[in-house]
Design a protein around this nucleic acid. Sequence first.
DNA 1: ACGCAAGTAGAGTAATCATTCTACCTGAAA
DNA 2: TTTCAGGTAGAATGATTACTCTACTTGCGT
Lengths: 190, 190
Amino acid sequence: MNELQIRIAAGLERAFAEHGFSAPNIETLRDAAQVSLRTLYKYYPSRNDMVLAALEFRHERYLAQIFADLPAPPREALFEVIRRVGQWMESEASHGCLFHSAVAAAPENGALRHLLQRHKHEFAQRLAAAAKLPENQTELLLICEGLMQLWPLYRNEACESALQLAAALLADDGGDRKVAGKRGRIETVA
Amino acid sequence: MNELQIRIAAGLERAFAEHGFSAPNIETLRDAAQVSLRTLYKYYPSRNDMVLAALEFRHERYLAQIFADLPAPPREALFEVIRRVGQWMESEASHGCLFHSAVAAAPENGALRHLLQRHKHEFAQRLAAAAKLPENQTELLLICEGLMQLWPLYRNEACESALQLAAALLADDGGDRKVAGKRGRIETVA
DNA sequence: ACGCAAGTAGAGTAATCATTCTACCTGAAA
DNA sequence: TTTCAGGTAGAATGATTACTCTACTTGCGT
């Protein structure tokens, strides 16, 4: 990916994040990418390719921002991830998760759904690694998803609730209460 | 709302739920509503009105299905709500929450955002009432949002995680751990 | 100096879409 | 029997869109 391609992808990401995936037409995207129509189509031959490029770009940026230089203790790392997700929403995603938005705008698009899946899966994997939890543990992912969905409505309160829930989850180290499923519980967090 | 209007709204809801909010054109919506174009426009004079009508209709249906005949004990009611949200996703919303989808497809549409807000707020209110929790408690709403977002990717596993988290939240009756905010804790659940 | 790879600017095209309009039908009340 | 409110069917319209194409410019290696 050369310098120009990066500039284009960054512009596309910004345009889609700001206006959603349906509204912006090609001219708007071109303006955001700051290249000519011809060049835009050279690198991304269809509007759909532009959507995919924007999401790929955001995926990298997101993971870099959330998981860079986390504190080592798993418990602290987990809380820090949640706080950073909150900050990310504040500064970059005031309308909610861009991947979910993209799929919502074009639910028949298989490539898009696949990208969403990959994005969430990779996030879950890195979160599990940072918090030293088993990979198939979905509760934390659920908390983060809830936070992202609630953010546009509740702002910081959503973030505090997410932290609260994470704390409760960690504290709840395994008494098998009535409703609780029989799946593996958290064991590795100190 | 007469019988015809109800049929139209139900058809619109089905069409948008199946194909998203961008894809279906007016002719598709007309087919789904099973009326003539003229009648469709008579009751809902623009496509945007059709979107709003579909969402209003779904809102009622959703609340009716989730909150009808809940068990009286708050704890059981809460778990039952979560299970029903899972069933709703299974049978009606395989692509995720329709209200979030609508806003994602048209983020500049203020009426839509307002409807989303009203929908979530009313859900939260009735959930709090059923579980006998303070109204401004957002943790449970966050769990439900997370469940709905995770459903398309994890199916039943998402539901089990939501139950798990709810149980952990109820168990965590208030030791003020490091991360925890200073907001009101759960007190009223037995 | 020349050629050319790679860019810009923007007009043209064919398709699609939301919306409107015309013409016709039907059942029940007067 | 007539009237008419309220329905159907579907053609016409005007705007918008994604995408293509033509013509022009610019920086650089030889």
